[in-house]
Design a protein around this nucleic acid. Sequence first.
DNA 1: TCCAGCTTGTGAATGTGAACGCAAGCACGA
DNA 2: TCGTGCTTGCGTTCACATTCACAAGCTGGA
Lengths: 224, 224
Amino acid sequence: MRYRKIPDETVRRLPLYLRGLLLSADRGREHISSQVLADFVGVQSWQIRKDFSYFGDFGTRGVGYSIEKLAREIKRILRLDVIRKAALVGVGDLGTALLAYPGFCGYGLDIVAAFDVDPDRVGKVVNGVRIEDASQIDALQERGVILAIVAVPRSAAQSTIDRLAEVGVRGILNFAPCKVVAPRRVKVISLDIAMELARLPYYLPTGGAGEHPLAGRSSRHRAS
Amino acid sequence: MRYRKIPDETVRRLPLYLRGLLLSADRGREHISSQVLADFVGVQSWQIRKDFSYFGDFGTRGVGYSIEKLAREIKRILRLDVIRKAALVGVGDLGTALLAYPGFCGYGLDIVAAFDVDPDRVGKVVNGVRIEDASQIDALQERGVILAIVAVPRSAAQSTIDRLAEVGVRGILNFAPCKVVAPRRVKVISLDIAMELARLPYYLPTGGAGEHPLAGRSSRHRAS
DNA sequence: TCCAGCTTGTGAATGTGAACGCAAGCACGA
DNA sequence: TCGTGCTTGCGTTCACATTCACAAGCTGGA
């Protein structure tokens, strides 16, 4: 089955495995079995083995996976094996929190630029990054930035993404709560936090008699 | 097929449809067809019709869906038809941003309490909500709060969730980047922002010759 | 060298959701 | 009242992902 079509869900799980390996690595062990890793990240062991089988033989039968080697392989597959520079557009409350968030560097992602249209914010330094005027987005290409995080208001989202696409950005993480479009060469991942919270009440128990008899059943698939 | 098993993916899309309806509502139209709504939110029209068919006949053939009625139905299905009180635990950078985020109220979700362990933060008022000491979580039940947002550091995540589960919280949106467990009666949705960003480089074009010949193909499923 | 115990890798079976296509049904005008 | 055009609802088909089960293969000890 090697090197056939790679399921989208597999790609979605790879960062999860990487996170698990990085968290478990500093506990002194050299190798880890699919069973132990599976328990640690909350999936099934065969799921892990199947996912890895799309990319090659990373383990040793009877032993397990070398933690360090496996982490390196996943990083290579996800193209996280080099430090990737990212830009943040929109330094409101959420943008500020993202700038301060230490979690990105664990994956080799480095926010090197931040932009906003508000003159009051431009020039301020947040977490070591100086906020620039949004017009400076034009220079992103020369600075070698091809990833961007969009945390602007809904009304500015599409135009921001258009601009980013124009200056050569190839991957965008969008937090604006609306549909956005981009050229085919630009991969956009959208995350609407309010929408995630909004589907939580669905799984709540019913107040009276079984109005939603089937809610919450059959979640064999993705947990969250 | 009415009232058979409801696909998890359908539940995941319902908030998307609701968002689309709310955004399109103020444009004066009374009815909307599945085709128009589909274009607006970025899915296929048959997908919308199929999803709604699990819950009942909301539309009128030849006319489309009443925007107001459909929004009301989706809210009912998602149990968003009453104002739901939610608590925030962890008022760091991300927590502060979430408190200030205006997007929740559009879905009838209201953050009425915020907790932190840092004495410097306790007592401060952010966006109209006074930050309380984490020990006050015990009183959540009497205050009628059964939804919580967890934005604490990784090391505190599991114990926070244990505590919330003890005091009767039934739904949790977790931002801590680690695996967490909860009793079956508690639904946990986890969101790891860094992990989302981490899978973005995978879709980047390859530098040299086709090292990843299949990347980015075949995305018939969920866009983001 | 051989055996016992583990763990991986993967073909095949199963299950689930996406995609299709069309009959049923409503609105409106002739 | 009938016909035309449009839109929904849904049975069916197809594609994909999960799940299973086991052969292949490594390690370490006898």
